[in-house]
Design a protein around this nucleic acid. Structure first.
Lengths: 341, 341
DNA sequence: CTGAAAGCGCTTACAG
DNA sequence: CTGAAAGCGCTTACAG
């Protein structure tokens, strides 16, 4: 038995030429329908597997896209991946997935692999510490790259992200409207565009709304439930703790609810908490979490479209597009408690 | 400027032969060190990217492994992936990741892609509904496949999984030792080996320990926080609710704690809850979750070793290995409350 | 130590 | 409608 049959095996078993078999398998009208069927039957019988590497080498086309994200453990990226997959499927493109885990070295290794394996281009949410030079190097090689969720400025690469500053501002306005005047910030401890912009939204809102600008109210940490738990503890230990809390991400906000619960503090009454991203878990958190919903589907689709048109050679200049998020009010926010003595 | 330079571009720019360049780049002792350095410098200068597809086609070797899991949204798989990655890195193998999302059609599409792109073999946690025939078809083509976490029996494929029945049995013994006699089961609603075995462990323990065998105590659902929330509600609504609860997975158990919290039921006092898997979140759940810790690292390493030796042709017969889990007692379990009238 | 030639499994003009 | 030939970018014997 032939281990891995190739076109020539099908051809010889049928008394056809290799070219005829090649065309038949791809439904060329040059081959009579009856012959095509026969070829396909024989291929199936022999257990033929198309060697796409060989075909792509010959044709000079590619059909894989590399996707590199920074933190698989954050559900928001699982959402992004699902949307990217959906968008890619319509273009018959496959996805080569990678998780950098915020490790620039791992990310660099993947970038190399992605190129060596002939991916057509790269969709990347850059790990913290990714430099313009890292990206410029790829671009110089003519390798199409588009960023999503996080942006890298000033290097001529397209980026599609949420309006992070605006999202936090909206969250702050919401709390301000509920009477909160001392509002804490947790998270965004990494040097990424997302962290910078969300914090900028916080600072801007503090100034614009006349809130307490106490720098102690800002606690920087990474994005995980545990970090949210710890950071919120620090905030509540303050001599004069905040009544409202905006978190860099939902994971942090969920961690924050744990801290409150342990201390017998009622979320939505004693303290109001707003998350960011709108992951599924928000609806079954306790209480269900008020959050800033990021339009992951629209961002994913726009990034895929940009990358594909770049790959196709219709490369207009780099574009940066920000998508407006939507505040979703659930039960983790409520009127500020009356001031205490 | 050359768009994507190849060996011949380096060769001609240096007045060398293509073969010399090929050997130099791979540090062959046949090429003088000085020449090697020069070749590498030129390659870097020209922005040369190794075409691994072409090289693998010629050499007849492969360096990618496909990994197909069933649910990326479950953190336990993120853990598995990380361990698989680590094991693979030592063998210079790359990973082509895919999430079937419990969709057999998506999984089938990936299996085809993985073969067409020339992955050396496949590590798979089969989606619900994967048949023996699905696997047999791959095996018939001589395509190396190894399962992990979930097993497919009777088809001559190696599998590495947790001792699921034993794990649940240990959880039940723990609760029994604390005085619980009416213990509920939530989850495992899918037809997978994991679900069957964990439920079997429950049933066996109910019989062996003389617990209440009320079938109402078993609620089947899929694995998510939300499902755990809902299923636990159903259990607590029973005229005679259980005092202990074993969940198919930690995500469910965490959902269960939410239900209890909402109803003012103290977890670890009024009701004891045991999860399964030991994901990171267990330690920052409230209360921290007693769980059955799966040795994901050992399972991942064993599966990778098996697959790689199969790829290398040292294919002993298929082996199935079960790894003994470890009960980790935290604060979600405690003595059964005194029986009520 | 270096180069010319063949070939991995495909596809694509080009003849017949 | 069908086949022989060339070539995608590499690597590997094989001569020199």
């Amino acid at each position: 038995m032939i281990i891995r049959p190739k076109l020539s095996d099908i051809a010889s078993s049928l008394g056809l030429s290799v070219s005829a078999v090649s065309l038949a398998l791809r439904d060329s009208p040059k081959i009579p329908a009856a012959t095509r069927d026969e070829v396909k039957r024989t291929a199936a019988k022999l257990g033929y597997v198309y060697n796409r590497q060989a075909a792509e080498l010959r044709r000079g086309v590619k059909s894989m896209i590399g996707v590199c994200i920074n933190d698989l453990a954050n559900p928001v990226f699982v959402d992004f991946i699902r949307h990217i997959e959906d968008a890619l499927r319509q273009h018959e493109m496959k996805l080569l997935l990678w998780n950098s885990g915020e490790d620039v070295a791992k990310q660099a290794a993947f970038l190399t692999t992605a190129q060596e394996y002939g991916t057509a281009g790269l969709l990347i949410c850059p790990a913290e510490g990714t430099t313009r030079e890292d990206i410029a190097k790829l671009l110089a090689k003519g390798f199409p790259v588009t960023t999503f969720s996080r942006l890298i400025d000033g290097v001529g690469i397209s980026g599609f992200a949420n309006d992070d500053a605006g999202g936090v501002f909206a969250a702050m306005e919401h709390l301000h409207g509920l009477g909160h005047r001392r509002i804490g910030w947790i998270g965004g401890g990494r040097r990424t565009s997302t962290a910078e912009n969300r914090l900028a939204g916080y600072d801007r809102a503090v100034a614009a709304l006349g809130l307490d600008p106490d720098p102690e109210l800002r606690v920087f940490c990474e994005t995980s439930r545990r970090s949210g738990y710890v950071a919120t503890g620090a905030l509540l230990d303050l001599p004069h703790p905040p009544t409202g809390l905006v978190a860099f991400g939902d994971l942090l906000a969920i961690g924050a609810t744990t801290t409150c619960r342990e201390r017998g503090i009622l979320v939505g009454q004693d303290v109001s908490i707003v998350g960011f991203d709108d992951i599924d878990e928000c609806t079954c958190a306790s209480p269900p979490l008020t959050t800033v919903a990021v339009d992951k589907g629209a961002i994913a689709r726009a990034a895929v479209d940009d990358l594909l048109s770049r790959i196709a050679g219709h490369a207009e200049g780099a574009v940066t597009r920000l998508f407006t998020p939507r505040l979703v009010v659930r039960q983790s926010t409520g009127p500020a408690p009356p001031a205490r003595a």
